[in-house]
Design a binder for these strands. Structure first.
Lengths: 242, 242
DNA sequence: CGACTCCTTGAACACTATCAAGACAGGTGG
DNA sequence: CCACCTGTCTTGATAGTGTTCAAGGAGTCG
């Protein structure tokens, strides 16, 4: 089911790079020269996934780096007895597998149908050496991600169930804003179980907590897996415990 | 009490850089040319801290990047009501404040007396632009750190108290090995409260759990804040749940 | 419309937190 | 050198938040 198109040939014009991947929209390309963008375009191919399909497996050789174009992806790690920890969700524009390790440190699956750009690691790394700006930008992205991971560590280590769920919706909303989408009807494509494994809770507790937030009129449920933040201030207060 | 020596002048010989910071030992310097090491040395100064002293505060302008030379440091974030989450511990060779954000995302305090190398961020960033190898190495370090953070997320999200404590000691031991120290008598300079805030538990639970591990003869306590791993296999099994 | 998965709700339980107090250092000063 | 003092650590009893087990309801897709 995983459809990989042939490598997209570098186009002659700066104006029309990879259609599927829309590489010029990627934040990393901001300050690149036309020929640099062309070289980046030359090494990528496009991958399409159905909902639920795996992309990478923990421990597998990290031969590719990806950027997500459309859809949502979950990253997770498993314990031996099957306990799952969702370490993050990816949205369009996010990177997957950028690391200096030779195996992936987590597994990734598509939550919704998804489209990705695939870069062979060796070729990308060769390019990084020639275009330091590119590595600088990837590093900047990694720094942001590390900030988010630290927030998540605080959430998992010290927040209550209600605070976790509130933080979660607040975070989803903030990420929509970063993608120039409206802050408020928050799209929640992942299941309660995904959310639970992300927040260190059980499905039941997530469900109960959402009900509570609903009853307090902090949020409301809208059709199409969306939730609306009804009282942003109160939700923020609950999320941050500030 | 924070003693900052004047900037160490670049030495003429490759053989004698900053005495306090021993910069050539830093992993980042591995593939640098002599003149590059000299330029790095030229911008650093040395900082000494007493036990308990703060180094950086969350939210503060991130004007400096540090590397730890001697001692142990705790990184933490606070919630509004005082709940604390220790996001990590630093040991000699580790970096502090490497990020592309303009404020620190966490606070840092010395656990033991400590010595650090201080790099002014602006100067370091200028140097990074000129020496891409350096940025590459910092990025590689950041990647390792991200792996550790993901492990910590699994720990906080899905492991039991016993598994957390076992993982903690296992981790401390592994970090000693990375620093070319013996794996086994594990030095534990941090308090039970530090450990608790790091593992998402309370002091009491950490204490009780350590007692249990001791009673099961998985570990034993040695004088001088050291613990000895008596049964590495069983401890690993418990830690990883593998 | 039926089968599936996902979600919600209920009741009992368990793990860890909380509250409380005593034990054990480690450092200081007499 | 010893007694004291303070902070840290350990241990006990109780309570609470979230889990577990169980079942019914809602939404979705053939």
């Amino acid at each position: 089911m995983q459809r990989i198109s042939g490598e997209i040939s570098a186009t002659d014009t700066f104006a029309s790079p990879c259609d599927d991947c829309n590489i010029r929209d990627l934040a990393i390309c901001g300050a690149l020269r036309a020929d640099e963008v062309r070289r980046l375009t030359a090494i990528l191919s496009s991958v399409e996934l159905a909902a639920g399909e795996p992309i990478v497996d923990e421990g597998e050789a990290s031969d590719f780096v990806y950027t997500l174009t459309t859809g949502t992806i979950r990253l997770y790690k498993l314990l031996a007895d099957g306990r799952r920890s969702v370490t993050g969700f990816l949205f369009p524009g996010d990177f997957l597998g950028v690391s200096h390790r030779d195996t992936y440190g987590f597994s990734a699956e598509a939550i919704t149908p998804a489209t990705l750009c695939q870069f062979p690691r060796t070729k990308l790394e060769a390019l990084l050496k020639e275009i330091p700006t590119l590595e600088h930008r990837l590093f900047a992205r990694a720094s942001e991600e590390m900030s988010l991971m630290q927030e998540q560590i605080v959430l998992l280590g010290r927040k209550t169930a209600a605070e976790r769920v509130a933080s979660f919706f607040r975070g989803l909303s903030a990420r929509q804003v970063k993608r120039y989408l409206p802050a408020n009807p928050v799209s929640v494509p992942m299941t309660r179980t995904d959310i639970a494994d992300y927040l260190g809770l059980t499905t039941e507790t997530v469900s109960r907590t959402i009900t509570q937030l609903k009853n307090k009129n902090l949020i409301s449920i809208e059709p199409g897996s969306r939730i609306r933040i009804e009282d942003e201030d109160l939700l923020d207060e609950l999320a941050e415990a500030l």
